[in-house]
């Protein structure tokens, strides 16, 4: 039980660390601006993939979303960034 709590804390810390990458970007950078304009779920999905190296399935588990929905959110987020930053 104690180990589960510790694992959950570590996981939570890791998630915060990964998601903080966006905050660490230069505030004036286009990527910071465009990521900030995304829906939070899309932004989190992209950061978990790029920064955390997680798979679609792992991201779905962490965001507590169905796998298909997660893939769809990430694809839409990537598409939005491509269009904005082209």
């Amino acid at each position: 039980m104690e180990e589960d709590r510790l694992e959950a804390l570590r996981e939570d810390e890791q998630m915060k660390h990964i998601l903080s990458a966006w905050q660490a970007l230069d505030r004036n950078s286009r990527l910071h601006e465009r990521l900030g304009a995304l829906d939070e779920r899309k932004r989190r999905g992209i950061l978990l993939a790029y920064v955390g190296g997680y798979t679609h399935g792992e991201i779905a588990g962490r965001l507590k979303l169905p796998l298909g929905t997660t893939k769809s959110w990430i694809r839409r987020g990537l598409s939005a960034l491509r269009e904005c930053m082209a």
Binding site: A49, Y50, G53, T55, I74, L78, R82
Partner: peptide, 13 residues
């Protein structure tokens, strides 16, 4: 191609 390239770069393939 643009979508696949993004997923490759993000490590999702």
């Amino acid at each position: 191609i643009p979508e696949i390239a993004d997923e490759y770069v993000l490590g999702l393939l």
